[in-house]
Amino acid sequence: MSAPLLEVRDLRTHFFTRAGVVKAVEGVSFTLERGEILGLVGESGSGKTVTGFSLIGLVDPPGRIAGGSIRFDGRDLVGLPPGEMRAIRGKRIAMVFQDPAATLNPVMTIGTQMALAVQAHGGAGERAARDLAGRTLARVGIPDAAARLDAYPHEFSGGMRQRVAIAVALLHGPELIIADEPTTALDVSIQAQILAEMKQLARQSGTALIWISHDLATVSSLADRVLVMYAGRIVESGPVSAVLRAPLHPYTRGLLDSLPAMARPGEKLNQIPGSTPSLLSLPPGCPFAPRCPRATEACRTDPPVVTRPGRLALCHHPLEAAA
């Protein structure tokens, strides 16, 4: 096997606020193969979005990458000069955000801004750039794409706007797309269309995809592997079906049990008590310990890494795979 496309080692992204240092990402490590779809799951404040932003070099002050390395195709992106990062961002690594209205310029036609995005990375002529824009729009399922190039973002529906944002990400045939909750703001029937298309596009073009989401069901039908984040750390990772069928970490179990789909209608859900801890005052040891039914004295020190074939969990008392 060749070297992985992306190799993240001990990534730490901290925000230096007046109230203290917020360790939004604390010691995250994972690898991503070419063409692989990776789900990054967690609740608000778990650090999943900051992880995505760190990969693409979009962490703004007071935040910065405080340590670790992000090797993309053999090259460390941490500490890369802004100019070199810009040459990679948008061309070899692209990002799709939750709110497409924030991605698109409201006073420019779709065609113009897509052509600009094409020309930003190489000397395509205006004509060729527009052609590429039209072809890419057609690929993401926008009907009558060539004519729609002259439309402004507000003339598109929410779902169509997100398709345009995805088309912008696809323009340069990137090796990696980071998608941050791209379907969260959309209706179910539209979300399903976009999920199906993303999966197909990634498979066809061999693009690796990091899909950041709070929705386990979405990730389960899309991803090959899943990382579960809690309080800035990856608490569990592994092949998606294995992790969801038999989670090792009590937090993953708790998340699954919180879903109404896992319970019988009208019955009480198996809730996780308490709420996510403030990143400013994390408990020592395992950050999940105060909410964990299996926590013991040992959890107050740093939890060990437990590994099973292809799996990893950050826990003293992992749940054993049920037969």
């Binding site: 979300q191 999920l195 929705d215 069901a217 979405t218 039908s221 079906s241 069928r245 879903l259 789909a261």
Partner: peptide, 8 residues
């Protein structure tokens, strides 16, 4: 159109 939790 709702993605189901895929355990298999």
């Amino acid at each position: 159109s709702v993605p189901k939790l895929m355990l298999e």
